[in-house]
């Protein structure tokens, strides 16, 4: 942990790919849930945010 950076310098390629894919998966899940999911409760809670961000919804 002495010389860790986000770049490829010390995070091994494998770790980088794993972390990257993990981040993309969780990130897409969150954005999908808040922005695009077709649930009435999620829609109403995130209503103003969906409009503000221009997510296509209702």
């Amino acid at each position: 942990m002495a010389t860790t950076t986000v770049s490829s310098v010390s995070l091994s390629l494998n770790d980088r790919i794993t972390a990257g894919i993990l981040a993309l998966l969780i990130g897409s899940f969150l954005v999908f849930g808040a922005g695009l999911a077709n649930s009435a409760v999620l829609h109403d809670t995130a209503h103003d945010v969906r409009h503000s961000y221009g997510f296509p919804c209702h």
Partner: peptide, 9 residues
Amino acid sequence: LLLTGISLL
């Protein structure tokens, strides 16, 4: 997380 994921990949 999306930004970080892309940056890592």
